[in-house]
Design a binder for these strands. Structure first.
Lengths: 100, 100
DNA sequence: AATGTATATCGACTTTTCCCGATATGCCAA
DNA sequence: TTGGCATATCGGGAAAAGTCGATATACATT
């Protein structure tokens, strides 16, 4: 886990918001069809709509968060679903408490 | 504590290093004269020398860290001493565990 | 095979960050 | 009060991040 990379990923209001939305997908994305939040998460399009930013920006943001190991993706057909990677958050907590 | 601001402050290798140095000042700054690390911390010049970056850059970095509430400063004569603000780190830990 | 939909990638432009050197400010000593 | 340090601030140039629209890719449906 690259420290600078993870903090950069967290240095943006929209990306922080996305992480927060993904904490309770059923609440924040009630319109996702065939929702299977536990297993796969939320698809890009839903996040994009809710964010109000462009499709390309959100796609980019999601890969930044993924490179930082804060979320995971699963491709199902033409959709890519993203969900939080709680192991990454645990590692981040340890980093803050022990290394910073 | 502004979330984006604190993560931006942490998004830089040199600034992370400074925070780490300030964890054990006696080890990292053995040459500081009249060291009173517990009370005031380490002065700008010592940090600047150790970092290898310019004086203006380090002064700037220290105020970024201070605005993020991660360090405190004390002015004594012509020196400004900086030390870690452990309350800020505690708050950051809480942020990660509870809000992110 | 052709079309439609979801996502990723590309190219461009703007804003922010990274650093520097030069200058200003504040404090101390002669 | 003049000169010398320590630090802060200013102005700028280069690199990175933010954000978009356009295009490419990948899959699904007809």
């Amino acid at each position: 886990m690259d420290q600078v990379e993870v903090f950069k990923a967290l240095s943006n209001k929209t990306r922080l918001q996305i992480l927060n939305w993904l904490k309770s997908p059923a609440t924040h994305f009630p319109d996702q069809p065939n929702a299977d939040f536990e297993n796969v998460g939320v698809c890009v399009g839903q996040i994009q709509i809710k964010s109000g930013l462009s499709q390309s920006t959100i796609s980019e943001y999601l890969s930044i968060l993924q490179r930082a190991e804060l979320i995971n993706s699963t491709r199902v057909g033409q959709w890519t679903y993203y969900k939080r990677n709680e192991e990454g958050f645990a590692e981040l907590g340890k980093l803050i408490n022990q290394e910073l």
